[in-house]
Structures are given as C-alpha cells and as structure tokens.
Design a binder for these strands. Structure first.
Lengths: 215, 215
DNA sequence: ACCTGAACACCGTTCAAGT
DNA sequence: ACCTGAACACCGTTCAAGT
C-alpha cells in the first residue's frame, strides 16, 4: 500500500495528473493492472490517498514552526507553507481538500488552521468562514497556477517568461480605449511572480479578517 | 459552429463535464464524431469555447447593472453575479479564465472588473493583484463547490442536507481535545449555505482592499 | 490474503475518402 | 467548404482464475 502511494506520487510529480494511469502505475510496481484494485477501489480513491499522503508532509512542516504571538501571522505562515507545496506539485491544487473523509491529513490541516481562529475574537460562523476563505485563496491561486503551463512550457520549448510575454504582447495590441485596465496592468502581468500574486490575495483576506476580529 | 457550442453547453448543463464527449455531442448534432473536428481542434478548445459562450451571457448580465458610487460595491455585485452563474453551472468553475486567448468574453469580464479598480487609489501592481484576488475567491469557492456532489446527491438518492449531516456526524465523533476547531464549527458546517460562505470570503477580500485603497 | 491475464466498454484523435 | 466511417491508441474497471 505504502509503495502504491509512493509510486503514484512519483508519477504525478514527474509528469502531472495525466501521467498517473493504472497501467503506468502497475508497470512501475512490476505487477498487473488489476492488482491495484486490491488496495484501492477506484482512481478517485487513489488520487485522494496520494494527495493525503503528501499533505502529511506539509502538515509535518507546519507543525515544526512554533506558534507565534499573532494568530493571523501564524495563519499566513501556514497558508504560505501550503502554497509552496502546491507550487512544487501543481497537481495537488486540483485534489486538495476534495474529500476530508479519505484525506485525514487534510482534516488535520484544516483543524490546524482553524485553531488559530480560536485565538481571535470571532463567533463560530466567522471562524468557519475565515478558514474557508483562506483555503479558498490557496486553492484559487493554485488552480490558476496549475493550469498555466500549456505543454510547450513543460517540454522546455518555451520558458515561462516568454509565455507570459506572448500574452502581454497580444494584450498591448488591444484598443486602449476599450481595454484601459488591461493596459494599466500589462507591465505588471508581464513576468509576474505567482507567489507575489498569491501573497497579495492572502494579505487582503487576512487584513479583512484582522479588521473583523478587531485585532 | 453556434449549434456545436449550444449543444455542448446543453450536455454540460444536463450531466456535468463527464457527459460532454465527442460521441454524445455528435449524436445530438445528428452527425459523425469527426465532424466536430472541423469546428474545433481539440476537446480543450471545445471546452474553452463553450465556457466563453456562457461567460458572454454573464457579461451581458453584468453590463446591465448600472455602475454605482462605490467601486468596491460594484466589484462585489459583479463577483456575485459571476458566482451565481457558477452555482447554476458547476462545471464552469473548472474552465473559467483558463485561457483568455480563446476566451475573449472572459478577457472582457476581467477588464470590466479591473476597470473598477481604476477608480481606487492604488498603483498598477495593487490593481493587478486586487483583480486576481477577486477572481481567485470566485474560482476557489466555485471549485470547492463544483466537486462537492459525489454522485449520490446527483442521483437524488441523498439530498445535500443529509450529505452535509453525514459529515457533521462523523466530525462530532472526533476527540474534542484533538479537534477543538472542528467541534467549534461543526454546527455551522451542518446545513451551511455555499453562497454565504462565498460572500464572507469575498467580503474579507474587499474589506482588505478598501483598507488598502484608504477608501 | 494477494495477484494475474484477458476482456469490456468506453475515450480523444486521425485519416482517407466522400459530397 | 463540410462531413463521414472506420480505425488507432489509449483509458478505468471487472472477473474468473490462479497462488
């Protein structure tokens, strides 16, 4: 079982979600396709368990960091750790927190995040919504990122800079009267950093939360 | 072409993303499978064009609403309209804003949102990040929602209330000492409304943005 | 308890050929 | 310019059978 998950994660890491097929996995394990069904009921379950397997390592990273004075700063640090893990493994974004039933580490991570909100002056509903919002920012940014590389970039034929630049050029061709905002931000878009973008989104949410908690 | 997209959207609406196959679509159009390839180069392109097709209607809804005094309130209204559209069509969440090259209505929507930030005291980078954050909240909540129904609920065998209740019961069984946050919010989770959850996340982001803009 | 080969019912995509 | 039938190379999943 352990090796099924390890090899599944290895396939996902090497070439993303489409690379994880029962046939490829079976070949790597040196067995038949049907064997995998002894460990797992379906591909969905395989994905859930593989996801939870790596969330376990994220959770360990998060637990290493000592809790600080400010719960919101702790929330920020935890969200950043989680986001970093998704940057390393873009496939994670799509499956993370999909099924807390099968993903017990995800549930623990959810609890870990939520515990920080217990230190804030909020009611139960506000706490529930706050954690949902933070997870939403992570997943939203991750999804945005995970879908970005359109195979050219994975092949190494085109790097990220050139890929963004191509979009930027197309945008600069647009009529400035009709697309004033696009022209306003095209230089920011060109060569932008996903992590910056994520941090800004997270900080807006956390600023709103701090305001709400009166802290 | 128009009818290809209309029927594709119809299939997606009726039974979600897995229902849209070239064979099912061809049958509906009363033709052969290969015909579709005259209009579209791949399934990805079909999905992008179908998505942009419905984003066009969302855009029309958004343009109907008159601009108000407060740009942030306008941003909220636009985001809510967008979210409502995704509630009606959960499959949208996964493809929305995936490719602004093929999705010209999505680009226009992005511009529409961004134009509100031009009315705020922000620099270009802040504006870029603000719109990304808002789109991120929408997509993040939409993804969370879109993956929720695990077929039982689609079959009508189990309604949403019961589905949530089942999770809530499992959570109530957890050790309160180990999962204090889960116990804090389990009653909120039970029977919660996705729209409430989304609105809260959006409001946190917008509160942060208002603070940043000093408005 | 654990694994297998072979089949089943699907997919997206291609291609030579038709009007 | 538009459409087709038939094939190709895959999928996830099942099942009877093996150790």
């Amino acid at each position: 079982m352990e090796s099924v998950l390890t090899e599944a994660v290895a396939l996902l890491d090497e070439a993303g979600a489409p690379a994880l097929t029962f046939r490829a996995l079976a070949q790597r394990l040196g067995g038949g396709v049907a064997s995998i069904y002894w460990y797992v009921e379906s591909k969905d379950e395989l994905l859930d368990r593989a996801t939870d397997h790596v969330v376990g390592t994220v959770l360990a990273d998060i637990e290493k960091a000592a809790p600080g004075d400010d719960p919101i700063d702790d929330l920020r640090a935890m969200a950043m750790t989680l986001f970093d893990a998704i940057v390393d493994r873009p496939w994670l974004g799509a499956y993370f927190m999909r099924n807390t039933d099968l993903q017990s580490n995800s549930l623990r991570l959810y609890e870990k995040l939520g515990r920080q909100t217990l230190r804030l002056k909020l009611d139960a509903r506000q706490r529930f919504h706050a954690v949902s919002a933070i997870v939403g920012v992570v997943v939203g940014s991750a999804v945005d990122m995970g879908q970005e590389p359109p195979q050219e970039i994975l092949d190494g034929a085109v790097d990220r800079e050139e890929y963004l630049g191509r979009f930027a050029s197309a945008w600069r061709e647009l009529d400035p009267a009709e697309y004033p905002f696009i022209h306003e931000i095209v230089d920011e878009f060109d060569g932008h950093d996903d992590v910056d973008q994520f941090r800004s989104a997270l900080d807006l949410t956390l600023a709103g939360l701090r305001l709400q908690a009166g802290a």
